[in-house]
Design a protein around this nucleic acid. Structure first.
Lengths: 132, 132
DNA sequence: CTTGACCTTCCAGTCACTGGAACCCCTATC
DNA sequence: GATAGGGGTTCCAGTGACTGGAAGGTCAAG
C-alpha cells in the first residue's frame, strides 16, 4: 500500500507518516521504485499512534506504548502508570488554562468595550494593583 | 539598568528579553560597552508583556496590545475584542483537553493495573470498537 | 593581576509537524 | 511517442516561544 492510501485510511497525513518513519516510530518496507510499501501491521500501528496522539500522549510516550502493545509479557500496571502520568499532565494544563480564563473573563467583564480609551484590561496588564 | 537586574525585577528571563529585542518587541538603548541599557519604560513594557503572556496571549497579540497601550486614541472595544478572541482560544483548548481527559480517565478506570498483560487502554488504542 | 560575576553574540535544539521546491514514477490518452 | 495528471521521493526551511551552551568581552573587588 502506498503512503497516500495509508494517509486516507488512517487519517494520519502523509507528511506526518514520513516524519514518523524518520524518527523510527514505524519502518515501512520499500518497493523497487523507492516507494514506501505499508503492511496492514504498519497501518494498524499508525492508527494506534494517531489515537494515542489524540489523547495527548507525546510521541515518545507513543513509542513506549507501541512497544508495550507488542510485548506479550507487559503488565497492565505499566500501561496504567503511563496513562496516569498523562492524565496528570492534562489536569495541570486544564488548571493553568482555567486560571487564565478566570482572570481574563473577569477583565473582559470589567471592560466597557466602547469608543473610549479607558480599559481595565490594559490597566491590569500594566499594573494589576491599580486595576484590581 | 542591565539585563540581569531587569530580569530579576520583571521575572522575565534574560534570554527571553534578548529574544523580545530580536523580534522588536522592545528596543533597549546600548551603553558604550555594548551592554543593553534598560529604561523604566522598557521595564514596564516587559512587565506588561510578561503578564499578557501569562494570560496566554501569543507574542504577536502582545505586540498589538502594547501598541494599543501606547495609543491614547484607542477604543476599549478594540482591546476587548482581542481579549475575547483570546478567551475563545482558551475555551477551545480547555474543551479539547476535557475531551481527552474524559476518554483517558475512563480507560484508566477500566484498567486493572496489575501484573497481567490484559489492558483496556492498549485495546482501545488499537481498536476502540472492540474495547468500547 | 586575577577571580568571578556580569555581559555580548551566535548556533543549535526543543516539539511535532507543515509547506514548498525540485525531481522521479506510472498510467492513460491523443 | 509525447504529454498530462496524479502519484511518489528527498531535502530544506519555518512554525512559537523560547532555552542551552560555547566563546569571548567587561567590570568591580581583593
Amino acid at each position: 500500500m502506498n503512503i497516500g492510501d495509508v494517509a486516507r485510511r488512517t487519517g494520519v497525513p502523509a507528511k506526518t507518516i514520513r516524519y514518523y518513519e524518520e524518527i523510527d516510530l514505524i519502518r515501512p518496507a520499500r518497493t523497487g521504485n523507492g516507494y514506501r510499501a505499508f503492511s496492514e501491521a504498519d497501518l494498524h500501528k499508525l492508527v494506534f499512534v494517531g489515537r494515542a496522539r489524540a489523547l495527548g500522549f507525546p510521541v515518545e510516550q507513543c513509542r513506549t506504548l507501541l512497544a508495550l502493545w507488542d510485548d506479550e509479557t507487559r503488565s497492565s500496571a505499566e500501561v496504567k502508570r503511563i496513562a496516569e502520568r498523562q492524565l496528570g499532565e492534562i489536569d495541570a494544563k486544564i488548571a493553568a488554562l482555567r486560571e487564565m480564563r478566570g482572570t481574563l473573563a473577569h477583565l473582559i467583564g470589567a471592560c466597557a468595550g466602547d469608543a473610549r480609551p479607558d480599559c481595565p484590561i490594559l490597566e491590569s496588564l500594566s499594573d494589576p494593583e491599580a486595576a484590581a
